[in-house]
């Protein structure tokens, strides 16, 4: 079974919030500056598709997925 680990490059984050919109169970945003927060860096299989979508739509290319 595929495992997905999320690596988040926080300094690149532009606080667009696209990830939290696409995968709200995995990503949130800080209240003060909107920078993304990873709620679960090894999400279960049910989240893999939306996490891939979140990485694809991130306008700062700040979300990297390690799939194994």
């Amino acid at each position: 079974m595929t495992a997905v680990r999320i690596e988040f490059d926080e300094p690149k984050c532009v606080a667009a919030g696209q990830c939290a919109m696409v995968a709200p169970d995995v990503f949130d945003q800080r209240d003060d500056d909107g920078v993304a927060v990873v709620l679960d860096d090894t999400p279960g299989p049910g989240q893999h598709e939306v996490v891939r979508e979140a990485a694809a739509v991130c306008p700062a290319a700040a979300i990297h997925l390690i799939e194994s």
Partner: peptide, 10 residues
């Protein structure tokens, strides 16, 4: 504004 205040508008 915090994102939570903005999301409902989007």
């Amino acid at each position: 504004l915090p994102p939570k205040a903005v999301r409902p508008w989007r």
